[in-house]
Computed example of a mutant assay.
Amino acid sequence: MARRYDSRTTMFSPEGRLYQVEYAMEAISHSSSAIGILATDGILLAAKKKRVARLVDRSKGADKMYELDEHIACAAAGITSDTNILVDYLRDVCQQHRFTYGEEIPVEMLVQRICDMKQSYTQYGGLRPYGVSFLYAGWDRYFGYQLYMCDPSGNYGGWKATAIGANYQAAESIMKTEYKDDITLEEAKKLAVKIFSKSVESSSMVPSKLEFGIFKLDNQNKPSFKVMKDREVSVLLKECGIEQVEDRD
């Protein structure tokens, strides 16, 4: 009788694969997509929501983006319940570091902390990997603007532009040809709209199903994160020549 190599998180297959980790990544590939673009004057996080109920009060905040501290924000793709647990953990880490050392935690250090936690869930029995990937946008006095991506295995890396979630390969293909090192935030917004317009159905190109988060330094040279309002997204879509259909969900 063949052994089920996916019955334990810690069990390797004969090919050296951990199927539970691959299943977590597969769950993310079926969730709504998110992209991150590093610009010269800030970082753009953009996300698409698959389903938006008409009775949901969207003024209460974004669904796919989270502010972790004054200098770090993130966009998520995957299981929402897992996302909430990890976001709470990340916020605790930020405040613990601030309380202990009297300064903001460096961006990469925070990413390493969450990746250590994710990786630990792949090496002990009785646990399952977290089914969520994150894009981190941050700024610190050591390296300036930084964009990171991490997956359920605990692997992470710094990026100029990347995507997670559904159709991430198509999004990355467009980025490879359209991205340039001197791109600005305004150009990054239009690139994000182009990516979404080519990778999703036209009925999804409405403000209520798109989120754009802008991370940049304000007039006082302090990092700030702002999620664009629906009316601002509508203006952006018009500037890009996107015909907006009526949202009937």
Rank of each mutant, 00 (worst) to 15 (best):
Ser234Gln: 10
Met149Gly: 12
Ala77Thr: 02
Thr122Pro: 03
Met149Ala: 15
Thr10Trp: 10
Asp249Gly: 12
Ser81His: 05
Tyr121Ser: 06
Ile28Ala: 09
Ile79Gly: 08
Ala46Asn: 03
Arg4Cys: 14
Ile35Asn: 01
Ser29Asp: 11
Ala2Ile: 11
Asp230Asn: 14
Lys176Val: 01
Gln146Lys: 11
Tyr66Ala: 12
Ser33Ile: 03
Ser153Arg: 04
Gly213Ser: 08
Met109Gly: 01
Pro223Arg: 02
Phe215Asp: 01
Gln123Phe: 11
Tyr136Gln: 02
Gly144Met: 11
Ile35Lys: 02
Glu246Val: 14
Ser81Met: 07
Leu38Ala: 11
Phe134Ala: 04
Cys115Asp: 03
Met1Trp: 07
Ala27Ser: 14
Lys118Phe: 12
Arg98Met: 15
Asn219Val: 08
Glu239Gly: 13
Pro207His: 07
Ser32Leu: 03
Glu178Thr: 00
Lys60Met: 15
Val52Leu: 10
Arg113Ile: 00
Lys50Pro: 10
Cys115Tyr: 07
Leu237Thr: 00
Gly36His: 04
Gln146Phe: 14
Lys216Gln: 14
Arg91Ser: 10
Ser33Thr: 05
Arg3Ser: 14
Asp249Lys: 06
Glu172Asn: 06
Arg54Ala: 12
Ala24Asp: 06
Leu38Gln: 07
Ser153His: 09
Met1Asp: 06
Asp247Phe: 15
Ser203Asp: 05
Lys180Asp: 00
Asp69Met: 12
Ala170Asp: 08
Asp230Ala: 15
Ser197Gln: 02
Leu45Pro: 02
Tyr142Arg: 09
Pro129Asn: 13
Asp140Lys: 00
Arg54Val: 01
Asp182Ser: 10
Gly144His: 11
Glu172Gln: 08
Glu108Asp: 11
Gln119His: 14
Lys118Thr: 00
Ile105Arg: 02
Arg91Glu: 10
Leu55Val: 02
Ile35Glu: 02
Pro106Met: 04
Glu232Asn: 04
His71Gly: 12
